[in-house]
């Protein structure tokens, strides 16, 4: 056993390179997914499809199952029933969190989670795909190609000036962008972004909207968000979750006049959350 772990592949430091097959235009399939905690159905027979390159917003009152859904896609929670596929061929229920991260699903937490004692640059280096083999980890240097990749992402998230600063001293909004940058270093096909603009100033929100819109196309982006103004500024397709299932799906302006949606969410108590 002690030999095995020094083997890069056995140590799980190997990145599987099964290319995701999205030839039917759908990147993520959730079908009939159900999960319950102590008898409470957090997700109830949920079916959801995310298109390749799509930017989708998911809204819903607290407890609608948004975070649980992200937990299922990223392997943190295993559902009681249902199928979750990445492209045509990859069964996500058979993989654990690191494996799912490596096949190209990046997740941003609700609370900005960056490694505060490390610099912005080091945070991005940490997230870089391909660096996670054991041999890749046992180095103190960075190759020119790796440097280029990091500076491209720094440009994309607008943190070029901050590259050498510690992540812990960044402003709240900058931490959120850094975390998005870390996801991009993983070269994901799908980005799951949980409440990206909570606590942001209007100017920061605007930049975040631009950033997420620029990512769509090359990546599929799923954004869970409470802020209706922000949702309106980015999404063409919106899914409303309620009590663990899809209540409605469509364009935001259509949904806003849907009496069902108004009752459970938009017009209800939770609208200002």
């Amino acid at each position: 056993m002690s030999e095995l772990i020094f083997e890069p592949e056995a140590a799980g430091m190997h990145t599987p390179v099964a290319p995701v097959d999205a030839t039917h235009g759908i990147l993520l399939y959730l079908e009939g997914v159900t999960v319950s905690f102590d008898g409470f159905k957090a997700i109830d027979n949920l079916s959801l499809y995310i298109g390749d390159g799509e930017l989708r917003c998911i809204i819903g009152p607290n407890g609608a199952g948004k975070t649980t859904m992200m937990d299922i896609i990223t392997g943190k929670t295993k559902p009681d029933a249902g199928r979750v596929f990445f492209g045509q061929t990859i069964d996500l229920l058979k993989l654990d969190e690191p494996a799912i991260a490596r096949i190209g699903i990046g997740r941003k937490f609700q609370k900005p989670t960056v490694i505060e004692p490390l610099t912005v640059l080091e945070n991005l280096e940490l997230a870089m795909s391909g660096a996670k083999r054991l041999r890749g980890l046992m180095t103190t240097r960075m190759s020119g190609e790796e440097r280029d990749r990091i500076s491209a992402v720094l440009d994309q998230v607008g943190l070029n000036e901050q590259a050498q600063r510690l992540a812990g001293v960044l402003a709240h909004g900058q931490k959120q962008w850094l975390e998005i940058g870390m996801l991009l270093m993983q070269e994901p096909r799908l980005l799951l972004v949980d409440e990206p603009v909570a606590g942001m100033t209007p100017a920061e929100m605007e930049r975040t909207a631009e950033l997420l819109k620029s990512l769509a196309g090359n990546h599929s982006v799923v954004v869970v968000e409470h802020d209706m103004g922000f949702v309106r500024s980015i999404a063409d397709q919106v899914t409303v979750l309620h009590q663990g299932r899809v209540l409605a799906e469509g364009r935001l302006d259509e949904l806003q006049v849907d009496p069902l949606v108004i009752e459970v969410y938009l017009g209800g108590e939770d609208a200002h959350h």
Binding site: T15, A101, F109
Partner: peptide, 17 residues
Amino acid sequence: RVLVAIRDSEDRTRFLG
């Protein structure tokens, strides 16, 4: 750096792969 990341946010590190 991975060690520090594990110390400060084990979940983040896991979801980074």
